[in-house]
């Protein structure tokens, strides 16, 4: 598989005030810390983790919406900088969680979908109209949708509009930030199928951000697990779900409710993810980890292949 996008040592720190005149100690929120991975052509990579683990921040970095504090981004082998971003931008599009907030209520659907084309100055107005009409059909909306406004559509349909807009500039990668979370259960599978179908037809890559592991298991090729801004596990889907290597991933998988299972008590990991404002020393997971030893409290583990599985990366001193 050819590499499409690669992240190399990406960190994102937010300065939350402090410092300066009478300001006290500066406060730095480490949302993403030294994350590296690559997404191949036509591949779907999932980004999973708890709320606040840095998924959206990382997704925004990939989509060019958030400049990283450190690290570089490669697209088709070229390092992205100020000069190369504009070209890459049309190839990387993003779909957000909230299909209600993401669409301008005063624009008809045709204008919404054509917007990225207009902004980037792609095609003549006539060409854009034709493309818009084709896209509406591609995402399974009725043709008369073009002249209607977002509020006239249901949540699932609005997410289709957002997907059509993302598809407009003919991207190679779509960053999908929790595209299903705001949708009804019975609608989720419709959108999920659409995403899969588009991928097969157009050879798209997805960076699929989600906290629903069942959906992740259904859709993706590889999974990246984030914890407190760190990449703790990166593995092909099957390996990850069958033999999770990192204790956090194990806990996460165990916590996912399953139909037909009765709750076995007392097997849930304790505690909560600490604040990214002052991460624990050593392995950031150690305060909650059932396997933690002294070394975990002092030395941060690095992401390395799990024993006997070259493609299965895990950042734990006692990985399985």
């Amino acid at each position: 598989m050819n590499e499409l996008v690669a992240l190399d040592g990406i960190s994102v720190h937010f300065h939350l005030g402090g410092g300066g005149f009478l300001g006290g100690k500066p406060r730095i929120l480490r949302a993403v810390e030294n994350v590296s991975f690559a997404i191949g052509e036509g591949e779907t990579l999932a980004l999973v983790g708890e709320s606040g683990s840095g998924k959206s921040t990382l997704g925004n970095v990939v989509a060019g919406l958030q400049p990283p504090t450190a690290g570089t981004l490669r697209f088709r082998g070229r390092t992205l900088d100020r000069a190369t971003w504009p070209q890459a931008r049309r190839s990387i599009q993003i779909v957000f969680q909230d299909p209600f907030g993401a669409l301008d209520p005063r624009m008809p659907v045709s204008a919404i979908i054509a917007e990225p084309l207009r902004i980037q100055g792609i095609g003549t107005p006539a060409e854009r109209r034709a493309r818009t009409a084709a896209l509406v059909e591609q995402v399974g909306l009725p043709v008369d949708a073009l002249n209607r406004y977002p509020h006239e559509f249901s949540g699932g349909q609005r997410q289709r509009i957002a997907i059509a807009r993302a598809l407009a500039p003919d991207p190679a990668l779509i960053v999908a930030d929790e595209p299903l979370s705001a949708l009804d259960v019975s609608i989720q599978s419709q959108v999920l199928n659409l995403m899969k179908e588009l991928q097969e037809r157009l050879g798209l890559s997805y960076l699929f951000i989600s906290h629903d592991l069942a959906v992740v298991n259904h859709l993706v090729d590889r999974v990246a697990v984030l914890y407190l801004g760190r990449l703790v596990e990166l593995a092909p889907r099957q390996l990850l779900f069958d033999r999770p290597s990192h204790p956090y991933t194990q806990a996460l998988l165990h916590a996912v409710p399953r139909i037909g299972r009765k709750r076995a008590r007392g097997q849930t990991i304790k505690g909560e993810m600490p604040s990214p404002l002052n991460p624990p020393p050593g392995c950031v997971f150690h305060p909650r980890c059932p396997k933690a030893q002294d070394v975990c409290r002092t030395t941060a583990p690095i992401l390395e292949p799990a024993p006997g599985r070259a493609a299965h990366m895990s950042a734990c001193h006692f990985k399985e």
Partner: peptide, 23 residues
């Protein structure tokens, strides 16, 4: 329909069954 549309962790299918339409 609801049960069927949920992705099954045991077996991965190409397309999930759907309940057409909306509420």
């Amino acid at each position: 329909g609801l049960i069927a549309t949920l992705p099954d962790p045991e077996q991965r299918v190409a397309r999930l069954p759907v309940i057409p339409g909306g509420v």
